[in-house]
Design a binder for these strands. Structure first.
Lengths: 132, 132
DNA sequence: GATCAAATGAGAATGGTTGTCAACTCGGAC
DNA sequence: GTCCGAGTTGACAACCATTCTCATTTGATC
């Protein structure tokens, strides 16, 4: 559950660099931005490697992934809380929301139908106060 | 709010065809799938036009857009029918589920943040009994 | 040090999506 | 009905995030 947990990944210079870079910001960044950041830090890491590493980290649950409105994947070090997004249809303004009720509900629905390893995706759309 | 509302779009054959096609399914489909569906229906509509039309409809709030896990945009007619899908990660088996609790929760969360015209998309993923 | 699977990087390939632009259409003016 | 201009279309090129390929390098183990 912690970030020092073994993930089955070899601790190469490149992976350490990516993990380090992830610690240096708290918002969502694209793979390309992270690659650029590494360059600025003097860490030479191939773009493909950045993509691969971020993917692995995401699979291992070490980072959160999100899709921007135009389909770009953005990453952020894993905040401890699972949450959803309330997105403005018009300007894209996003609010992170939590819902224990939803978590419980999805789990019970899945169990009811015999589904295992449950996860879910929930997005709420609306028009934000500024746009309406 | 209704689908007969003027959207500032000229009612061309192609747009009518896309809107019609959107009425023929209730789940999220990609632009390419919708384009293919139009072809099967004997409606000749260019792919670019399908993309443009869906974009316009989304802007006008006539359809909901969502990004799949791999960044593809998927569209669904904006409907009041509130059911969600419990999808098997392995074989794709889908169960439709309803959740008044979720409907209520999303509405209240949105209201809390001042968001209007609320809709939402929820998919639950798991491994079905047959696959686990 | 020898060995081998895992990891890397450069560049090519992929594929969804958007841009381009000449041809076409719709709706209003006449 | 005809004309006109702006909106729309479609074929195809361009774009660009992401993934693939594969020869080379690296880390862990013996």
């Amino acid at each position: 559950m912690t970030s020092t947990e073994p993930t089955g990944m070899r601790p190469t210079r490149q992976r350490r660099a990516v993990v380090d870079a992830m610690e240096s910001f708290a918002d969502f960044r694209s793979a390309q931005e992270i690659h650029e950041l590494l360059g600025e830090r003097g860490e030479q890491v191939g773009l493909a490697t950045v993509y691969r590493t971020l993917q692995r980290l995401a699979e291992a649950g070490e980072v959160d992934v999100l899709r921007t409105e135009d389909g770009e994947a953005v990453y952020r070090r894993c905040s401890e809380s699972h949450h959803h997004h309330l997105v403005c249809r018009s300007c894209g303004a996003t609010v992170e929301v939590e819902g224990p009720a939803v978590e419980r509900w999805t789990r019970s629905i899945a169990a009811e139908h015999g589904y295992a390893d449950v996860s879910h995706a929930l997005e709420i759309f609306g028009t934000c106060p500024r746009c309406s």
